[in-house]
Design a protein around this nucleic acid. Structure first.
Lengths: 187, 187
DNA sequence: ATTATTTCTAAACGTTCGTTTAGTTATTTG
DNA sequence: CAAATAACTAAACGAACGTTTAGAAATAAT
């Protein structure tokens, strides 16, 4: 053994994640990352392989960051009302630092829809499918509808969630919250 | 005068527009544009100034392309039912060539939300505001609600439109259409 | 037919990108 | 203290980007 690292990986990943969240993947350059993370390119590459590897780590970090919202959602006792609350919680986290960043997952989903990056797309699909299953589970609590009808409702909500996350970058918090209210009127 | 151009500008713009529509702005390189438009870089620059200028021209071309949908919408005699029909028409045009491309305006809006490009953003905002005014107009036909309530409804529909355009890149046409039905359930 | 003018081709431009490498500095171990 | 090892700095890498330019080809006017 020899010299020790002068940085903690989880800490610099958090900083990188914030930068990716604000600017997106492509717009964030290694030079910007160097500055924001406070470490040299060499250190980034030795710790995370390459830009893509760093980004995957940042996605994990983001999921960790929002895991409390997800856990709360999963463990909530009610049905539709819990889904609505989850939407509100998500919006709140999207407007964190009075800086509109939207949802990193949705942003990434949209940015990568043009590209062919299996590793990223798998993560995105896994996230969305997971969310869908939870929503279906909650819907069943409040409904005696057919499986097909519930699936349709779940798709509706998932699409609404996707839409509001996309819109969170260009709309005000008030507009987003009005939208949530309207969305659940239709359920 | 001397040699004549060997291409028609409106024709090569149409081709460029299709490419931007499929791939987005950044992902589309000048090299790809050369190939798709069938003309040399020099010709592109002499006709459109630069990549940004070409893209602005493509946005105009896209608006022209969807202008029939817009005209139909503007001149429609009814209220809410016409808005719904407009949504359906928009979705149809998004799924044009069995290739999912979404809406170029919305794609651009999302892609440029990270950046600072005044010319593009102005075009986007103008488009959205125009759409909003038409929607408000239609809503008033079917409603005696307060101005504020109508504005809220208009915001809801606009956000829904934005959301479904974003989602059009990752969802099926069936899912999108189910979503439209749900959206208009309680309007 | 010659000249002037415009468009064409194709190569090169300077930047920036993500990535790698050579050499220095610091820490651990014998 | 000296040797070994790992992490640092900083410079350079090749490739791709958008853009420009020099020269050939083609058409109009004289």
């Amino acid at each position: 053994m020899a010299r020790k690292k002068e940085y903690i990986e989880t800490e610099v990943v958090e900083k990188a994640m914030q930068l990716f969240w604000r600017n997106g993947y492509e717009t964030t350059s290694m030079q910007m990352l160097e500055k924001e993370m406070g470490i040299n390119k060499f250190s980034i590459y030795s710790s995370f392989g390459n830009k893509n590897g760093l980004f995957l780590e940042c996605l994990k970090c983001y999921k960790e960051k929002i895991s409390n919202i997800f856990e709360k959602f999963k463990n909530a006792p009610n049905g539709i009302e819990d889904i609505k609350q989850f939407f509100y919680d998500s919006v709140s986290s999207n407007f964190n630092d009075d800086y509109i960043k939207g949802c990193l997952i949705t942003n990434t989903y949209n940015e990568f829809s043009n590209k062919e990056d299996k590793a990223i797309k798998e993560q995105m699909n896994a996230f969305m499918n997971n969310l869908k299953l939870i929503i279906i589970d909650k819907l069943k609590k409040d409904s005696t509808k057919s499986e097909a009808a519930i699936l349709e409702q779940a798709n509706y909500l998932l699409l609404a969630k996707h839409g509001l996350a996309a819109a969170a970058r260009v709309n005000s918090k008030k507009e987003i919250e009005d939208y949530i209210e309207m969305t659940f009127k239709n359920i």
